[in-house]
Amino acid sequence: MKWVQIVAMSVLACILFALEWPRLSRLPKRDKAAFITLLFVAWVLSMLDLPNLPGPTTFINALFRPLGQYLE
């Protein structure tokens, strides 16, 4: 399962890259850098076992938990 996920997400990242690059190659360096950084971050994240890692949703839930208790 783990390997299927890694291969599938890598293929997805490659497809996205292939789809965008022809048009992107004519744009300035800054645009290219933004695209590649975002895609790279997404690709690295997709390698991890995300559901069981603490993430942004865990963070905001912890941050606003006292408010939730007040509303109960």
Binding site: L50, P51, P56
Partner: peptide, 8 residues
Amino acid sequence: LFCFWGVP
């Protein structure tokens, strides 16, 4: 990815 991240 954000849909899954930290959401067991």
